[in-house]
Design a protein around this nucleic acid. Structure first.
Lengths: 226, 226
DNA sequence: CGCGGCTTTGATGTTCATCAAGTAAAGTGG
DNA sequence: CCACTTTACTTGATGAACATCAAAGCCGCG
């Protein structure tokens, strides 16, 4: 199996910290899979056997709540460490992961990973940094969603896709109205009405899945003050 | 400075993983402070110079949002690692920490801590476990607060104090109605009305700060289905 | 073609925030 | 110690934010 790590844009994070012998072992335990959009590749309850990160694409982490309703925890972009949440504290996943765009996932043997953390101090610190950042992001999301109105919640997610995922003002929304509802905690109808209001107010243009942000300052203002 | 680590109930977590030479260095960098209830001992924006954990007492992590409103992130119990969130990813705290009961905080030099992580593999894994658990807890809280009605939110917090903090059905509420509002995202008046309804419905008894859970199954049911 | 899922809109009712006003409790200065 | 201010708590009235129910159009798919 050829190790194509050099071509991976996550090089900086991982491989600058691993020296000769380590790289061999690490690369040998590595594999890569393509996940088509819509496919759930980790199921809530699955045993954790590997450490995964998203090389390319877009995913959602989601979970069934006590009443059987599916809730979206967050959307993962490239460089997000899909497994970080409980790779080190649980034996099974307590959430599912589904691709919402065609994605590429890198997979490492969990024991090789743990071994590396134990023997490479800098690598261990790096992993803690990554874990801390994930925690910060969840906290930000959580406080944001609890304090905002429906306008702020939807504005926030549109800005996330525009500024953090596609880096454009015009993009195809990778999620359904239902998924926006599952993420924001709003009802589907409310999400539709908000999007519709944004459209009527000239904040955005909508053509099915296609979103074009026309008045970005307006959207940012809605995000910050609603 | 005498190292009284043996008497600390967190021994298991930390010191079983550190061998001779390490303990000396670690203990030498350790200190302990008493924090009176109500005192803010970490301010949003402060430089992170040490690693702290709560030995005894009760604290709240909180943050000012963009509009100047104080939001409570979570309540920390003994053994919670106050600093975990961003000790390893940020230079300054992005939240404040305030004691809501008389508390004892253990303080370690951050560099000694990082050194220990780099040189002691098992310790590094342990820290990652702790970080993962913190992340899981925040995710649980977040999903809970976004999907519940006012009844479920307040019920959930009452049960937290009863089952996770005081281990009794009768206890003095360590937070004001305002703080419950800041944590749940509800208005103060709504919090009061919910507590008042619980009282009228015979779920709890209220004498000022004193709460007595009378109908626990009822409260649990409210927590799960509202 | 017809079925199921996604989307949209309207009508209606519930959940919740805001405003106003008042009481209790707790600190502050004389 | 008492008057004084401030802060916490409480209740009611009102309106805004949001969910739910119902109905209909759209679209992909077997």
């Amino acid at each position: 199996m050829y190790c194509s790590c050099e071509s991976c844009h996550i090089n900086n994070t991982f491989f600058t910290l691993i020296q000769e012998a380590g790289v061999d072992k690490f690369c040998h335990s590595r594999s890569e899979i393509k996940i088509p959009s819509g496919k759930t590749f980790i199921n809530q309850g699955d045993e954790i056997k590997s450490f995964k990160y998203l090389k390319d694409g877009l995913i959602k982490l989601h979970r069934l709540d006590i009443n059987g309703k599916d809730q979206i925890i967050f959307f993962g972009r490239p460089l997000d460490y899909i497994s970080i949440q409980n790779t080190f504290s649980e034996k099974t996943y307590n959430y599912s992961v589904t691709a919402i765009e065609n994605s590429t996932v890198c997979i490492f043997d969990i024991n090789v990973m743990k071994d590396l953390i134990q023997t490479n101090g800098k690598f261990a610190i790096k992993m803690l940094e990554i874990s801390s950042m994930a925690l910060n992001r969840i906290i930000d999301n959580s406080l944001e969603l609890i304090s905002k109105t429906m306008y702020g919640k939807v504005a926030s997610l549109l800005l996330f896709f525009s500024e953090k995922v596609y880096l454009k003002d015009s993009f195809d929304l990778p999620v359904s109205r239902k998924e926006i509802a599952q993420y924001t905690g709003l009802s589907i109808e409310t999400v539709i009405r908000v999007i519709s209001e944004f459209r009527k107010d000239g904040i955005i243009k909508v053509f099915g899945k296609r979103i074009e942000i026309v008045n970005k300052p307006g959207l940012i203002s809605l995000n910050e003050h609603n």
